[in-house]
Design a protein around this nucleic acid. Sequence first.
RNA 1: GCCACCUUAGCUCAGGGGUAGAGCACACCCAUGGUAAGGGUGGGGUCCCGAGUUCAAUUCUCGGAGGUGGCUCCA
Length: 584
Amino acid sequence: MCQPDIELLRRHTASHIMSAAVGMLFPDVKRGVGPWTETGFYQDFDFGEAEVSDKDFKKIEKKMRWIVNKDFKVQKRMLSGEEARAAFPNDEYKLELIDEILDRGEELSFYDFVGEEGRVFYTDLCAGPHLESTGQVGVFKITKLAGAYWRGDENKAQLTRLYGIAFADAEGLEAYQTMLEEAAKRDHRKLGKELDLFTFSELVGPGLPLFTPKGELLRSTVGDYLKQLKESKGYQHVWIPHITKKDLYETSGHWDKYKDDLFHVKGKSDAEFVMKPMNCPHHTQIFASKMRSYRDLPLRLAETTTCYRDEQQGELLGLSRVRSLTVDDTHIFCRIDQIQEEAEGVIDIIRQFYTSLNMWEGDNFWVSLSVRDPEKPEKYLGDPANWDKAESFLESVAKNNDLPYKRIEGEAAFYGPKLDFQFKDAIGREWQLATLQIDFVMPERFKLEYINEEGQKERPVMLHIAIAGSLERFLSVIIEHYAGAFPAWLAPVQAHVLPVNSAHEAHCEKLIETLKEAGARVEYYDSSDSLGKRIRNCQKARVPFAIVVGDKEVESGNLTVRKYGEEKDQVMTVDEFKAALGRG
RNA sequence: GCCACCUUAGCUCAGGGGUAGAGCACACCCAUGGUAAGGGUGGGGUCCCGAGUUCAAUUCUCGGAGGUGGCUCCA
């Protein structure tokens, strides 16, 4: 194993220092795990009866500083199982870890903080590695406190997790904090308010966003683009109602697994209805509505439509995780030997879509090739031979297209493997947007059939595809990606027209009419504010173009255009301006 | 759902057991302004909701709702 870099060691040792400091203040504390992370470190604690909140951070940090100043040597020591158990007689978490390590046939290593005359100040079970002494840790800070289940299992005890960060010097800490502040400025929830894109109402309910006129323009611009892309590849659009009898999901197999996560609807009859949480079962009924021939395949049914899921409230987050989500869904019904070609076509659309948004860049996303967990075959429905085929189809598609993919075992859906496209938000959290899933189970459940060349009935395969994923989540990611400054083709308002004074009003009106006829989204900004203030407000609202109309423009017929973020004007003809609004 | 924190004007926030504050936004008036805040006046509040303690609660306590950071979940 290669040696982790110094920053990881710093974080890891800082985590032990925090752990030791907490022990000085809370002698009865028990400890879970305490690793480094991509940006910092954490340590899980069981505080027993003691109450701990972020008000305790200062006290803990003070003790940490004391430990750093003492410059304890950090020394590794191997213990036998017996010795290790004796060292932590009352700590059920430590004992569980010790037994587990021994079961794996590995050795038990401990790291000590050693002071003067070899006195051991603190010791913990740990695989290492660490810095040589606590004095090398540098600058640190406890950042947040959260509940975290022991071993990530919600049926087990909930521990208290303290998160921290550590840097070589104060400049490192400062740079990190500046980075967070910059990210906070791009937060889609903040920009959604500032740019007047969407809102929430306590009366409507959590996780149910309301889109304003500008937000809906943004949404429908994305939706129209997707529709156009799909139709150019032979996808046909359909429409389904938003509620269904529960019988549909009993047949699909989703009822048992998800019935508690659905919104239930009661009508006059005894039949139980639910808000649809997905579209695939409905779409199977369109496939099944008439006799299908192999000549009809692949049949590609697309629809951008809203689904409703009763997500746990603690999970909701702005537009990233909502209860009403609009999926740009496609279901392709095809033969097994058509999967690969169809999948290639899907990747084409995904690539084209994200490339035109400048998001198709290696460090901005990665692809999860989500396959079965080989240890838990019982979790997956369908013929293992088909699974093998599907997984290898997806892998070869990922390879052929040079996708930055990782094979992740255990992440497959219960009905089939998938390619999930994960994109980052402003603070590096990853969100699944595009997805391509293979499904052998649903055609079986709904007994879907087509007639093959020999006149025999055969079962199709189903592909589930989403390009943007949920439009709500997609918008959250692109709002942060562009920090609200959308390219002109996407911007809800593409230009403001500013008369220098009220004498230029009539000319502005004519200009706006001409531009609107060409499909441009332009608004008039009257002269009740000073010109300087209007320019400033256009920049604040991230409007791509501000067009200033004064005597010069009235006379020449040209446009004086101030582009968003630029400090100089550009003079152009009306036709040149129209061209600047396109997708380019 | 679980753990911690937060909730004062449309927005961003200050304040504090005894008549509620600012800036921006909004309305009206003046100014007709050539490129990142022109000037004046004014309206705006169930201090998230409910209960308790108190002579008195926006402020303290408890409960609830909503939000934030995590955990769990994610068809």
